[in-house]
């Protein structure tokens, strides 16, 4: 699925979304985030039923604060708008596939 930029519309795209979504919290000044970017994009192409989103923590400070994001890269998985798990720190494609796991989606 195509990656969606949700700096301004977290509520519409994630909180109100019925299904699985993953948000990549990132910033320009974060090296491992930049390294993780292409990995997130590659993996997103493999899953049709997961919504892949990116949120820049400099553009939107409120949502990271609400979810207690204090270190990036951080990916958070949501189901029907509720957080179900997260991973802090750089992971490669295998790591991201493991994180997604067997969701039967």
């Amino acid at each position: 699925m195509k990656i969606i930029n949700i700096n301004d519309n977290f509520d519409e795209e994630v909180r109100k979304y019925k299904g699985i979504s993953i948000v990549d919290f990132w910033a320009d000044w974060c090296g491992p985030c930049k390294m993780f970017g292409p990995i997130f994009e590659n993996v997103s192409k493999k899953y049709d039923n997961i919504k892949f989103c990116k949120l820049n923590v400099d553009e939107n400070e409120e949502i990271p604060k609400e979810f207690g994001i204090m270190s990036i890269p951080c990916i958070v998985m949501f189901k029907d708008g509720e957080e179900i798990k997260r991973n802090i720190g750089f992971i490669d494609e295998d790591g991201l596939n493991d994180f997604i796991g067997d969701l039967n989606v």
């Binding site: 000044w29 974060c30 090296g31 923590v57 400099d58 204090m70 270190s71 990036i72 802090i88």
Partner: peptide, 17 residues
């Protein structure tokens, strides 16, 4: 508490504070 307030890298995580 790593990533939840504890950090070993100021330049990585400082902006959150």
């Amino acid at each position: 508490l790593i990533g939840k307030g504890i950090s070993y890298c100021a330049t990585c995580d400082g902006m959150f504070f």
